[in-house]
């Protein structure tokens, strides 16, 4: 997980580096396990493509990144800030101060005896491995959890302002014109004045050649126009990250190109992007890293050249032979 180019940074610098960090997340829908312990980090400027068979949990992973889905276990960090509740298993201080740890300790060395570092390590490992923590682990553990929360937690509504999301089925607001769609969030959230929001929105519309549509309702536009406007709606918030969930899958084939080319422009501008896609050609051209998911896990990840040129995993090879 630790990347070579990060190892020469001090921990403090490390945490300030803007990025999305997924730490060991699990997601269950009822008894269905959709994500099974995933970890990955998206750094500033990266363009990460997520590929994999349908039902493998790609959308769920993406939606966990901005908390449209809440992970059942694990944590999501954005720019060094925690957006999920803290997961006790990811914090040694919590595990060490838990009742379970104290009981285990007492049963081995006796009450009141200070355990050795080695013993503590073993106990922490055992608790993690065997999933021994309970809902309530005593005041000391609760205090640790509160402390972690207090130091790191950021309100999700604030965090989401940095992170645009583009959906497969577009989801432009049906009750608003194009212009109203674009200025709604920046103005409501008081990020821009109405005048500035309008000006920015118009500039972006001009850039995609749709400024003449500003007073239309979304229903009057073609699928490709709608999706490009949905991308622009996110851009109006001046985001640092963009999440795309199969943005072209619901479009007629002749409209796919215009959407992909706008996304390519964004990538060239240096936007940090996470893209769930079935467009392998696009992934290969634009992505700096490709993640292959299957059955709720990351099975293989690497550069596009490696994933498409020299896939190692059997399931990935099988998948590629079907889609390429």
């Amino acid at each position: 997980m630790i990347n070579a180019d990060k190892s020469n940074l001090s921990p403090a610098e490390d945490i300030r580096e803007p990025m999305i960090e997924i730490k060991n997340i699990y997601k269950n829908f009822g008894s269905l396990e959709v994500l099974k312990g995933l970890s990955t980090t998206v750094k500033k400027g990266e363009k990460v493509a997520i590929i994999g068979p349908s039902g493998s949990g790609k959308s769920t992973l993406l939606r966990c990144m901005n908390l449209l889905e809440e992970p059942t276990y694990g944590e999501v960090w954005l720019d060094g800030k925690l957006i999920t509740p803290p997961d006790p298993y990811l914090h040694r201080s919590v595990i060490e101060s838990s009742r379970t740890a104290k009981k285990l300790c007492a049963s081995i060395v006796g009450k009141g005896v200070e355990p050795t570092q080695q013993l503590l390590d073993d106990i922490v490992a055992k608790i993690k491995k065997e999933d021994l923590l309970r809902k309530y682990e005593g005041r000391a553990a609760s205090r640790e959890m509160r402390l972690i929360r207090k130091q790191n937690f950021i309100n999700i509504n604030v965090a989401r302002r940095k992170m645009g999301m583009v959906f497969q089925n577009v989801n432009l607001f049906n009750n608003m014109t194009v212009m109203q769609n674009l200025v709604c969030a920046p103005v409501k959230l008081k990020i821009k004045t109405p005048e500035k929001a309008q000006k920015d929105a118009l500039a972006l519309l001009e850039r995609i050649g749709l400024s003449d549509k500003k007073d239309e309702y979304p229903q009057k536009l073609s699928g490709g126009q709608r999706q490009r406007i949905a991308i622009v709606r996110s851009l109006c918030m001046d985001p640092e990250y963009m999440l795309f969930d199969e943005p072209t899958s619901a479009l007629d084939p002749e409209m796919v190109g215009e959407v992909l080319s706008l996304m390519k422009d964004l990538a060239d501008d240096g936007m940090t992007m996470v893209i769930v896609t079935h467009e392998m050609g696009f992934a290969r051209e634009v992505a700096t890293r490709v993640i292959f998911m299957d059955g709720g896990s990351i099975v293989e990840e690497g550069t596009p050249d490696k994933i498409f040129g020299a896939p190692e995993n059997e399931r990935l090879r099988d998948f590629l032979s079907k889609v390429l």
Binding site: N157, R160, N171, A185, L189, R233, M237
Partner: peptide, 21 residues
């Protein structure tokens, strides 16, 4: 449901999304 998800994803809170969208 996509309508409210789009609102939330832009950073609008639950009631803002409810009222405007």
């Amino acid at each position: 449901k996509g309508q409210s998800e789009a609102g939330r994803a832009l950073g609008l809170n639950y009631s803002q999304t409810l009222i405007s969208v």
